[in-house]
Protein backbone atom coordinates (compact mmCIF):
# COMPACT_ATOMS: atom_id res chain seq x y z
CA UNK A 1 0.00 0.00 0.00
CA UNK A 2 1.75 3.04 -1.29
CA UNK A 3 1.32 6.65 -0.22
CA UNK A 4 1.05 8.69 -3.38
CA UNK A 5 1.30 12.46 -3.46
CA UNK A 6 -1.09 14.07 -5.91
CA UNK A 7 -1.22 17.68 -7.06
CA UNK A 8 -4.31 18.94 -8.88
CA UNK A 9 -4.90 19.27 -11.81
CA UNK A 10 -3.96 15.64 -12.48
CA UNK A 11 -3.34 13.99 -15.84
CA UNK A 12 -4.86 10.72 -16.94
CA UNK A 13 -1.57 8.81 -16.94
CA UNK A 14 -1.00 9.58 -13.24
CA UNK A 15 -4.52 8.50 -12.32
CA UNK A 16 -4.00 5.21 -14.16
CA UNK A 17 -1.03 4.39 -11.91
CA UNK A 18 -3.31 4.31 -8.85
CA UNK A 19 -4.74 1.08 -7.50
CA UNK A 20 -7.36 0.13 -4.96
CA UNK A 21 -5.90 0.31 -1.46
CA UNK A 22 -3.36 3.07 -2.22
CA UNK A 23 -3.42 6.04 0.10
CA UNK A 24 -3.11 9.47 -1.43
CA UNK A 25 -2.24 12.88 -0.10
CA UNK A 26 -3.66 15.69 -2.21
CA UNK A 27 -2.38 19.23 -2.50
CA UNK A 28 -4.00 21.92 -4.64
CA UNK A 29 -7.52 22.83 -5.69
CA UNK A 30 -10.62 20.85 -4.69
CA UNK A 31 -14.14 21.82 -5.77
CA UNK A 32 -17.04 20.78 -3.57
CA UNK A 33 -20.12 19.48 -5.33
CA UNK A 34 -22.98 17.39 -4.06
CA UNK A 35 -26.61 16.70 -4.91
CA UNK A 36 -27.79 20.04 -6.28
CA UNK A 37 -24.59 20.69 -8.28
CA UNK A 38 -24.70 17.28 -9.95
CA UNK A 39 -28.35 17.66 -10.70
CA UNK A 40 -27.86 21.09 -12.27
CA UNK A 41 -25.00 19.85 -14.46
CA UNK A 42 -27.07 16.83 -15.43
CA UNK A 43 -29.92 19.04 -16.61
CA UNK A 44 -27.64 20.86 -19.01
CA UNK A 45 -25.99 23.77 -17.21
CA UNK A 46 -22.23 24.04 -17.81
CA UNK A 47 -20.17 24.16 -14.61
CA UNK A 48 -18.85 27.66 -13.84
CA UNK A 49 -15.26 26.40 -13.50
CA UNK A 50 -12.96 24.34 -15.72
CA UNK A 51 -13.10 20.87 -14.19
CA UNK A 52 -10.55 19.20 -16.46
CA UNK A 53 -8.05 17.25 -14.34
CA UNK A 54 -9.78 18.31 -11.13
CA UNK A 55 -11.33 16.46 -8.21
CA UNK A 56 -14.88 16.99 -6.97
CA UNK A 57 -15.36 16.62 -3.21
CA UNK A 58 -18.77 15.35 -2.05
CA UNK A 59 -19.02 17.62 0.93
CA UNK A 60 -21.39 20.18 2.43
CA UNK A 61 -18.95 22.24 4.48
CA UNK A 62 -19.76 24.53 7.38
CA UNK A 63 -18.49 27.94 6.21
CA UNK A 64 -18.26 31.14 8.22
CA UNK A 65 -17.38 34.58 6.85
CA UNK A 66 -14.69 36.27 8.91
CA UNK A 67 -14.23 39.82 7.57
CA UNK A 68 -14.41 39.30 3.81
CA UNK A 69 -12.78 35.88 3.92
CA UNK A 70 -14.64 32.56 4.07
CA UNK A 71 -13.32 30.13 6.68
CA UNK A 72 -14.12 26.43 6.77
CA UNK A 73 -15.25 25.14 10.20
CA UNK A 74 -16.11 21.53 9.39
CA UNK A 75 -15.77 19.61 6.14
CA UNK A 76 -16.17 15.86 6.31
CA UNK A 77 -17.33 13.80 3.30
CA UNK A 78 -20.99 13.09 2.64
CA UNK A 79 -22.50 9.85 1.30
CA UNK A 80 -21.56 9.53 -2.37
CA UNK A 81 -24.10 7.00 -3.58
CA UNK A 82 -26.65 9.78 -4.11
CA UNK A 83 -24.54 11.03 -7.05
CA UNK A 84 -24.45 7.60 -8.70
CA UNK A 85 -26.97 8.54 -11.43
CA UNK A 86 -24.91 11.60 -12.50
CA UNK A 87 -21.24 11.05 -11.71
CA UNK A 88 -20.31 9.08 -14.83
CA UNK A 89 -21.61 11.89 -17.03
CA UNK A 90 -19.46 14.50 -15.31
CA UNK A 91 -16.46 12.21 -15.77
CA UNK A 92 -17.23 11.88 -19.48
CA UNK A 93 -18.15 15.47 -20.29
CA UNK A 94 -15.80 17.48 -18.08
CA UNK A 95 -12.80 15.15 -17.64
CA UNK A 96 -12.62 15.21 -13.87
CA UNK A 97 -9.98 12.77 -12.64
CA UNK A 98 -11.53 11.87 -9.32
CA UNK A 99 -14.19 12.29 -6.71
CA UNK A 100 -13.81 12.23 -2.93
CA UNK A 101 -16.61 11.05 -0.68
CA UNK A 102 -17.66 8.26 1.62
CA UNK A 103 -19.38 4.92 1.23
CA UNK A 104 -18.25 4.24 -2.34
CA UNK A 105 -20.26 4.28 -5.56
CA UNK A 106 -21.83 1.78 -7.92
CA UNK A 107 -21.31 0.09 -11.26
CA UNK A 108 -21.95 3.12 -13.51
CA UNK A 109 -19.25 5.15 -11.78
CA UNK A 110 -16.86 2.21 -11.69
CA UNK A 111 -17.28 1.74 -15.45
CA UNK A 112 -16.75 5.48 -16.06
CA UNK A 113 -13.58 5.45 -13.93
CA UNK A 114 -12.24 2.75 -16.22
CA UNK A 115 -13.37 4.28 -19.48
CA UNK A 116 -12.46 7.94 -18.91
CA UNK A 117 -9.60 7.55 -16.42
CA UNK A 118 -10.73 8.53 -12.93
CA UNK A 119 -10.71 7.22 -9.34
CA UNK A 120 -12.97 7.23 -6.31
CA UNK A 121 -11.23 8.44 -3.19
CA UNK A 122 -12.62 7.62 0.25
CA UNK A 123 -12.10 10.18 3.01
CA UNK A 124 -12.69 9.25 6.65
CA UNK A 125 -16.40 9.63 7.38
CA UNK A 126 -17.15 11.89 10.31
CA UNK A 127 -13.62 13.28 10.50
CA UNK A 128 -14.86 16.83 9.98
CA UNK A 129 -12.03 18.50 11.89
CA UNK A 130 -9.17 16.55 10.32
CA UNK A 131 -10.54 17.33 6.86
CA UNK A 132 -11.07 20.99 7.77
CA UNK A 133 -7.50 21.23 9.07
CA UNK A 134 -6.08 20.36 5.66
CA UNK A 135 -8.17 23.06 3.96
CA UNK A 136 -5.79 26.00 4.00
CA UNK A 137 -7.83 28.56 2.08
CA UNK A 138 -11.24 29.12 0.60
CA UNK A 139 -10.61 30.94 -2.69
CA UNK A 140 -14.11 31.41 -3.97
CA UNK A 141 -17.59 30.07 -4.36
CA UNK A 142 -20.06 29.56 -7.21
CA UNK A 143 -23.73 28.70 -7.37
CA UNK A 144 -24.39 30.11 -3.91
CA UNK A 145 -28.07 30.25 -4.91
CA UNK A 146 -28.14 26.50 -4.12
CA UNK A 147 -27.45 27.27 -0.45
CA UNK A 148 -24.09 27.18 1.30
CA UNK A 149 -23.78 23.39 1.84
CA UNK A 150 -24.73 22.73 -1.81
CA UNK A 151 -22.62 25.44 -3.47
CA UNK A 152 -19.36 24.90 -5.40
CA UNK A 153 -16.63 25.95 -2.97
CA UNK A 154 -13.10 26.47 -4.33
CA UNK A 155 -10.90 24.97 -1.65
CA UNK A 156 -7.13 24.98 -1.46
CA UNK A 157 -5.91 21.92 0.41
CA UNK A 158 -2.56 20.65 1.60
CA UNK A 159 -2.01 16.97 2.34
CA UNK A 160 -5.65 16.01 2.22
CA UNK A 161 -5.59 12.26 2.94
CA UNK A 162 -7.83 9.65 1.32
CA UNK A 163 -7.83 6.02 0.22
CA UNK A 164 -8.35 4.84 -3.36
CA UNK A 165 -11.34 2.50 -3.10
CA UNK A 166 -12.32 2.42 -6.81
CA UNK A 167 -9.64 2.61 -9.48
CA UNK A 168 -9.46 3.02 -13.25
CA UNK A 169 -8.82 -0.71 -13.75
CA UNK A 170 -12.30 -1.84 -12.81
CA UNK A 171 -11.45 -2.69 -9.20
CA UNK A 172 -13.64 -1.69 -6.26
CA UNK A 173 -12.58 -2.25 -2.67
CA UNK A 174 -16.24 -1.94 -1.65
CA UNK A 175 -17.24 -4.80 -3.92
CA UNK A 176 -14.32 -6.96 -2.76
CA UNK A 177 -14.91 -6.36 0.96
CA UNK A 178 -18.65 -6.91 0.58
CA UNK A 179 -18.24 -10.24 -1.18
CA UNK A 180 -15.56 -11.46 1.19
CA UNK A 181 -17.46 -10.44 4.34
CA UNK A 182 -20.69 -11.90 3.00
CA UNK A 183 -19.01 -15.27 2.57
CA UNK A 184 -17.43 -15.10 6.03
CA UNK A 185 -20.69 -14.17 7.77
CA UNK A 186 -22.47 -16.92 5.88
CA UNK A 187 -19.87 -19.42 7.12
CA UNK A 188 -20.31 -18.27 10.74
CA UNK A 189 -24.11 -18.47 10.62
CA UNK A 190 -25.75 -19.65 13.86
Amino acid sequence: MALVKLATPIDEATIRTLHVGDSVSITGRLYTGRDAVHHRIHTGTRPPVDLEGQIIYHCGPVMVKEGDQWVCKAAGPTTSSREEPYQWEVMRDYKIRGVIGKGGMGEKTLAACKEYGAVYLHAIGGAAQVCAASIKRVDGVDWMDLGSPEAIWHLWVEDFMAIVTMDSHGQSLHKNVFEESKARIEAMKA
Binding site: K102, G103, G104, H122, I124, L173, V177, E180, R184, M188
Partner: peptide, 9 residues
Amino acid sequence: SGIGPMGFG
Protein backbone atom coordinates in the same frame (compact mmCIF):
# COMPACT_ATOMS: atom_id res chain seq x y z
CA SER B 1 -16.12 -10.61 9.06
CA GLY B 2 -13.26 -8.54 7.64
CA ILE B 3 -15.38 -5.42 7.09
CA GLY B 4 -13.21 -3.15 9.25
CA PRO B 5 -13.33 0.61 9.91
CA MET B 6 -15.16 2.53 7.13
CA GLY B 7 -15.56 -0.83 5.37
CA PHE B 8 -11.90 -0.65 4.28
CA GLY B 9 -11.24 -4.20 5.49
